[in-house]
């Protein structure tokens, strides 16, 4: 599948490692904590600690490091652009100028800001990739359903929302294949998608998405009838085949997370921020 090549986010690598065996709720919360920590970090030392932690997790999970890194490839242009943007636009009054040309001035403050923000994006991407690589979509949605369930008290239809996600996940690939078919059918009738300027190219997209949308709605209608025929009446009265359990591995993971969070918070508080 050409469309999904090179995308590691959302791919699941089955395995039996410590991380694979964790309850999805533990993994979701742990990832959430790391995300929050990442947003607070402003020093290279703290990033170093996060890097060691994530690298260890990747090794324990048995993910080939090369594969883990390949996911960054499509992001490189954006990351580079972001870094350059920060380099020239961010400055502080006492910053040292590295070089200056015409209206562009790069300072050391801009350099550090660019690097820190780029690192932050890389790590945010890394932690979400790690989560999806080690957790199947089904257990992710199960975990999410369980974590969201308190919100039922304020009237949020959590089970229905999660069911929507489950169905969406199932149809991503089906619709991607369908899109591929439509594109090929139009190419067979002489549409050259790679020719013309930006506006001409964009115009060619509409005749592709229209049939895709129509087909998606038709599928949705058929699916609703099939679900109704299987007695689906919404989340009420539904039971689950699988229930989640917090086990010994989860307790160990929670302990590790506590120690790691304490360390990062300690680093945030004691090490002078680079910026």
């Amino acid at each position: 599948m050409e469309l999904t090549k090179n995308i590691t986010l959302g791919v699941y690598l089955p395995g039996k490692s410590f991380i694979h065996r964790l309850d999805p709720r533990t993994k979701i919360i742990a990832s959430g904590i790391i995300v929050i920590l990442l947003l607070m970090i402003r020093s290279y030392q703290a990033y170093g600690a996060v890097f060691i932690f994530l690298a260890a997790a990747v090794i324990i999970a048995g993910i080939p490091p090369g594969y883990a890194f390949s996911g960054f490839k499509p992001m490189l242009p954006v990351l580079t652009f972001m870094w350059i943007f920060q380099l020239f636009l961010y400055s502080s009054p006492d910053a040292e100028v590295i070089f200056s040309w015409w209206i562009f001035t790069a300072t050391d403050a801009g350099f550090h800001m660019g690097t820190l923000i780029t690192l932050r994006v890389i790590f945010l991407f890394g932690i979400t990739t790690l989560l999806t690589l080690t957790t199947s979509m089904v257990s992710l949605t199960d975990g999410l359903e369980s974590l969201l369930s308190p919100l039922k008290a304020i009237g949020l239809p959590t089970q229905e929302l999660v069911m929507t996600m489950v169905i969406a996940l199932r149809f991503v690939l089906i619709l991607a294949e369908e899109l591929d078919k439509i594109v090929k059918a139009q190419m067979a009738r002489g549409v050259a998608f790679d020719r013309g300027n930006f506006i001409q190219k964009t115009k060619k997209i509409f005749p592709v998405f229209l049939p895709l949308f129509i087909s998606a709605f038709k599928r949705a209608e058929e699916l609703i009838i099939a679900m109704e025929a299987r007695s689906y009446t919404g989340g009420k009265h539904r039971t689950k085949m699988k229930t989640l359990h917090i086990g010994r591995v989860d307790l160990a993971a929670i302990l590790i997370m506590l120690i790691f969070s304490a360390l990062i918070i300690f680093l945030i508080l004691t090490v002078n921020p680079t910026i």
Partner: peptide
């Protein structure tokens, strides 16, 4: 079919 896992899909009806 509703779910991305065969066993979960078969369970869909009984769950309902």
């Amino acid at each position: 079919l509703v779910s991305s896992v065969v066993e979960e899909d078969v369970a869909f009806g009984p769950e309902n």
